[in-house]
Nucleic acid binder design. Structure first.
Length: 282
DNA sequence: ATGTGTTCCTGTCCGC
DNA sequence: TGCGGACAGGAACACA
């Protein structure tokens, strides 16, 4: 579920609650998610002070003293806060809900709960110097909102690729953080057909794609991400970018381009749905 | 080396 | 309503 904008939304919500706080207690309500939790995760976290909350691609990175905790939300993960003011609301602690797997109690009394029904998420803990070599981070491409993601870089990474551009942009080694929604939306805005071979897109069109990807992600972050089913901001609020979808989840609906008159199609590529307008995207 | 298909898991929705 | 199947924001892994 969560792509870069959703994870960034969660990070921004959690940061003021978590940064500077000491972890008072960690409750593991099962032994792992996608993989088993690291040995003695709760013990190793307890008493540590959270220096900073970062995001790399779709991963949340919690900087501790000498250690880094990595959290991935998979398809259905949420991290929500209770026991602390969040915007206009204050959610009191309640009894743990179904699929609440990890509970972080902070010294302030705030509680951060990781809930993940499908359990495709992950939690890991490693020594800070090992970050660049971490198996889940090692092969990640550039951050799409960073300076390393630019037209020459993207051209080079796509050159010679025979796979469809849709599949290539989902490949986290090419650019790190895009998922199914934002690839579909970016390709529509760039007028590129999702099935077009990545290595056969003209230079000007790839060059245009870079700022389009940035723009889609930035607008989505401003909207608090997209809530289809599971995504919630750290406050528990919904995201709102789904109201700005041009193609995602709009199969059969009219294309929103003025005067187009076409209808959105859905095709399957590498096992994932792609949505596009056959008239606007070539 | 690249490319595609399968798999992990729960929940929801749609057609019969 | 109940039941079966399709599908869901990810990505590691196994195979051609």
């Amino acid at each position: 579920m969560p792509e870069l904008p959703e994870v960034e939304t969660v990070r921004r919500g959690l940061a003021p609650v978590m940064e500077g706080q000491r972890i008072a207690r960690v409750t593991l309500r099962r032994a792992g998610l996608r993989w088993p939790f690291p040995k003695d995760l709760a013990g190793r976290l307890t008493g540590q002070r959270i220096a900073h909350l970062r995001r790399r691609s779709k991963y949340l990175l919690v900087d501790l003293k000498g250690d880094v905790m990595l959290i991935h939300l998979g398809m259905s993960g949420r991290m929500t806060v209770s026991g602390a003011p969040m915007g206009r609301f204050h959610r009191p602690h309640g009894a743990p809900q179904k699929h609440d797997h990890v509970i972080f109690d902070l010294e302030s009394g705030a509680r951060v709960t990781l809930n993940d029904p499908r359990r495709f998420g992950a939690v890991d803990l490693f020594a800070a110097p090992d970050e660049a070599a971490h198996p889940l981070l090692r092969h990640l491409g550039p951050e799409p909102l960073g300076n390393a993601f630019n037209a020459p870089d993207l051209r080079q990474r796509l050159s010679g690729k025979r796979s469809p551009i849709k599949t290539a942009l989902l490949d986290q080694r090419i650019v790190a953080g895009l998922g199914n929604i934002y690839v579909c939306e970016a390709l529509f805005r760039a007028g590129i057909h999702p099935a077009r071979a990545a290595g056969r897109i003209s230079k000007p069109r790839i060059d245009a794609l870079v700022p389009i990807i940035r723009e889609v992600l930035n607008v989505a972050i401003e909207a608090g991400g997209s809530s289809l089913r599971d995504h919630r901001q750290a406050s528990g609020d919904l995201g709102y970018f789904q109201h700005q979808f041009q193609v995602y989840d709009r199969e059969g609906a009219p294309c929103l381009t003025l005067g187009c008159g076409g209808h959105i199609r859905r095709i399957t590529q590498s096992g994932r749905s792609s949505f596009y307008c056959p008239r606007c995207q070539r």
